[in-house]
Amino acid sequence: MKKILKDPYLWIFLIFLCYPLYPYLGDYISLGTELLIWFIFTLSFNLCLGYTGLPSFGHGAFYGLGAYGTALTFLHLYNKDGFFVPIILGALIGGLFAGGLGYLIRNKKGVYFAMLTVAFTQVLYFICWRWDEVTGGEAGIKGIVRSSFLGIDMGNSYNFYYFVFIAFVLCALVIRRIAESSFGKSLQAIKQNPIRAEALGYNTGFYKFAVYTISGFFAGLAGGLYCFLTQSAFASVLDWSKSGDVVIATLLGGGTVSFYGPLVGSLIFVVAQELLSAFWEHWMLLYGLSFVIIILVLPTGLMGILKRK
């Protein structure tokens, strides 16, 4: 029992379980929903960056693939009562493409790896932006309807919030389990010393491919949820800046030293985006500047403060 009480997850889950009750913030229910989606996205991303040291600077690709995959599945294949099938298919598409790309670039190092992931995202962006017949081009895909799930009306934003909340709890538990597993420890070994890992019997290329696939699956799932939140899919989800935002949020929070870093970073990013942008359209200037200062002072991000001894 004590162990459970000490678990940060318990408190995070409780805080977000009560979200709609909070004064002021509670009115921004879609902000809360988006935040939970970001949590899933950045936690999955950090398996690559924080745990394996893979500089995947185009992770928005899998988020976008999840969003488009979900939207297209919903419109053309399955829209009976729900979310489940389109979102899972969206996630699978994210995982599939991540697996394919991960396989091709598994042995690329550093900046080459990063550039290839960015290029991949850009290609996808232009496909979605131009392929009018399938993706709706610039106009995007609209007409995604949140009908009901297990008899609960999902058109209601609060009900949908709890749907996403449950998805977040499940994903968060699974992702942490992976991070703490033997596999997760192997990833850290590969990050810290790939040559030694190879000498100890680790097929480092395979592990990178595997974690990339897993990460792509959860990123796709986050994208699918986002598609239902906005009831649409636009090429902007594939914009390179989206991939950059994820990197910045993860580093800012301290994903390289703490499993919970991405959550802290997402919280700051999403809230700043929502609140600051309402006051000043050049809010990114402030955000970017604070990022630079924080990383200069605290290279390991905000969670680095706690890890210092």
Partner: peptide, 21 residues
């Protein structure tokens, strides 16, 4: 342990905790 779990063939286990082995 990183070496031993490799030798024992459990290094790729996704859901069993590293600490608990």
């Amino acid at each position: 342990r990183i070496g031993v779990q490799s030798y024992m063939g459990v290094k790729g286990r996704l859901f069993s905790r590293f600490e608990d082995n």
